[in-house]
C-alpha cells in the first residue's frame, strides 16, 4: 500500500504545482493592469510605479511566481480590494461550505448506494424500475431549479423552512440544520442519482461474478451474499466514482449557495468575480484546486483500504 499511496501523493503534488501555475498565469492573463485595480481611483504614474514595485509587479514572472507561491504556502494569499487578508476570509467561509458538502455527500451516498443495491438485487422488478427512473430524473433535473421549486413549496407556501440564510451550528444547532436541509438535499440530488446508477451497475457486475456464485454454492444466506460478498467489491468501484463527482460537487456548491444565500466559499467565488477582486479570485481558485486534489488523495486512501489487492502486495510464490 505504501508504494501505491506514495505514487498517488507524488502525482497529487505535481498536479497541485501545475494547478498553481495555471492559476498564476490565468490571473496575469486578466485584462487590465492589476496596478490600476489596486490603485483604485489614483492614476498618478508615480503612485502606479510605487504600487508595482511594492507588489513586485516590476519583476519577471518566474520571480513573481516563486514569491507568490512561497507566501501562499505560508498561508499568506495577499490582501483583497478591501485590504482584508484573503487567507483569513477563506478560512472563515470554508467551514460553511464544508458542512454543506458533508451533509450533501451524506445524503447523496446513503440514498444513492442504498437505492442502487436494492435496484440491483431486485433487477427487473418494480422497485428496480422506479429507482432507475428516479435516478434518471435526478440526473436530468437541474438541481438549482429544484432548489427554487423547494423554496416555493417549503418556504413560500408552507413556511416550513427558511428560504435563505445561514446560522452557525454552535450558535443555533437546530436552526443550522433547518437552514442547510434544503441546500444539502439540492446538492446531494445529483450525487445520489449518479451513485445510484453506478452502484446498481457495480452490484449487477459483482452479483454475476464467479465469487458470488461460490458464496451461494456455500449455502450462505442471501443477506450475506449481497451484503458481504457483492457489496464489498462494489464499494471499491463506487469510491472512485465519489472522487470523480467532486468537481460537480464544487460547481454545485457555488450555485446552491447562490440560491439559498449561504455565505460560504461558493458565494465568495462569485463575489470575487462580480467585484473583479483578482487577488481574492486567485486565492479562491488556488484553494479550490488544492482542495480537490487533497480530497481525491483521501479517496485514493479509502480505495486502497477497501481493496486488498493494493493494501497487501501480490503473490510471493508464483
Amino acid at each position: 500500500m505504501g508504494g501505491f499511496l506514495l505514487r498517488k501523493a507524488g502525482a497529487a503534488l505535481i498536479v497541485v504545482f501545475l494547478s498553481s501555475i495555471v492559476v498564476f498565469i490565468g490571473i496575469r492573463a486578466l485584462p487590465g493592469d492589476p496596478a490600476v485595480a489596486l490603485g483604485a481611483e489614483n492614476r498618478d504614474p508615480a503612485v502606479m510605479a510605487a504600487i508595482r514595485h511594492s507588489y513586485g509587479l516590476d519583476k519577471p514572472l518566474p520571480v513573481q511566481y516563486v514569491k507568490w507561491i512561497s507566501k501562499a504556502l505560508r498561508g499568506d494569499l495577499g490582501l483583497d480590494s478591501r485590504q482584508l487578508p484573503v487567507g483569513h476570509t477563506i478560512v472563515t467561509r470554508l467551514p460553511i461550505t464544508l458542512e454543506l458538502a458533508f451533509l450533501a455527500v451524506l445524503v447523496g451516498t446513503s440514498i444513492g448506494v442504498l437505492a442502487g443495491v436494492i435496484a440491483a438485487v431486485r433487477r427487473g422488478k418494480l422497485s428496480d424500475h422506479s429507482a432507475t427512473a428516479t435516478a434518471l430524473v435526478g440526473l436530468s433535473v437541474p438541481h438549482f431549479w429544484l432548489g427554487l421549486m423547494m423554496i416555493i413549496v417549503f418556504a413560500v407556501d408552507l413556511h416550513w423552512l427558511p428560504a435563505s440564510g445561514y446560522v452557525s451550528f454552535r450558535a443555533h444547532p437546530l436552526g443550522n440544520l433547518e437552514h442547510l436541509l434544503m441546500p444539502a438535499l439540492v446538492l446531494g440530488t445529483g450525487l445520489s442519482a449518479v451513485l445510484m446508477r453506478q452502484t446498481r451497475s457495480a452490484m449487477l457486475n459483482s452479483l454475476s461474478a464467479d465469487y458470488v456464485r461460490t458464496a451461494r454454492a456455500k449455502g450462505l444466506s442471501e443477506r450475506m451474499v449481497v451484503g458481504k460478498h457483492a457489496l464489498r467489491n462494489s464499494l471499491i468501484t463506487v469510491t472512485t466514482v465519489i472522487g470523480l463527482q467532486l468537481g460537480a460537487l464544487i460547481s454545485g456548491a457555488v450555485i446552491t449557495e447562490q440560491i439559498f444565500v449561504i455565505p460560504g466559499f461558493g458565494r465568495l467565488t462569485l463575489d470575487a468575480v462580480n467585484e473583479r477582486d483578482y487577488t481574492l479570485l486567485q486565492g479562491v481558485v488556488l484553494v479550490a484546486a488544492t482542495g480537490y486534489v487533497v480530497v481525491n488523495l483521501l479517496v485514493d486512501v479509502a480505495y486502497s483500504l477497501l481493496n486488498p489487492r493494493i493494501r497487501v502486495s501480490g503473490a510471493s510464490n508464483q
Partner: peptide, 8 residues
C-alpha cells in the same frame, strides 16, 4: 475469479 478478492 471464484474466490472473493476482498476477503482472506
Amino acid at each position: 475469479t471464484s474466490l472473493n478478492p476482498a476477503f482472506k
